[in-house]
Amino acid sequence: MSLLTTHGLEVFYGDFQALFGVDVAVEEGETVAIIGANGAGKSSFMNALSGLAPTRRDAILLAGEAVGGTPAYDMVKLGIALVPEGRRLFPSLTVEENLLMGSSGRTVERGWTLPVVYDFFPVLRERRRQLAPTLSGGQQQLVAIGRALMANPRILLCDEISLGLSPAMVQTVYQALAAIKARGTTILIVEQDLRAALAAADRIYCFMEGRVSLAGRPAELSRDAIQAAYFGTAR
């Protein structure tokens, strides 16, 4: 049984429909990447999984259990943590306070704790007393990832974590993801950088206009097929 599956997932913003019946399956321990053009509905998908966007109950199954529409503050307790698009750190909190916020919902101290995150991203230990907005964009992204890890998720959702980062920082971030995966965490990323996505992911899904336009293993997908699924050009 897959760890996480969606069945006919739909997301509405008022009258506007952003997703039209999306089916995705993620196995335990996998890294899955979602690609797609701007406005394809990738963030809407992540928001539905994290509980920020409402959905039908049976549209999302976590280890076989229907959890769609669970409020975000309970979804994280079920083991789904989100690194939101644009980082969204708490600007009036310090780095350390931001990280601690990530553990607000959990009750046991195990797995990812403050010292573990600091060992993982040593630069954050030096900056722990600084207010979050005073960090560089790349450092802020590390805080956002660390904050999500502090929830000890079974599934880590990362929405465009390489956006606006230097190539060196992108590498740092993806090395971190690999290390997180090595600890057994399942990872779902949204990535605009096609090369990074293909390199990091075991499988990819391509979204177009609210639907899955392509799915498969990177090695099995031809460049043309991806291009067609991404831009909607003739197949």
Binding site: P71, M75, R88, S92, L93, G105, A151
Partner: peptide
């Protein structure tokens, strides 16, 4: 203080 910053983001922290 975090809730004052963003009522949306605190929710994905379990609050």
């Amino acid at each position: 203080r975090a809730t004052a910053d963003s009522t949306e983001i605190v929710q994905i922290m379990g609050i």
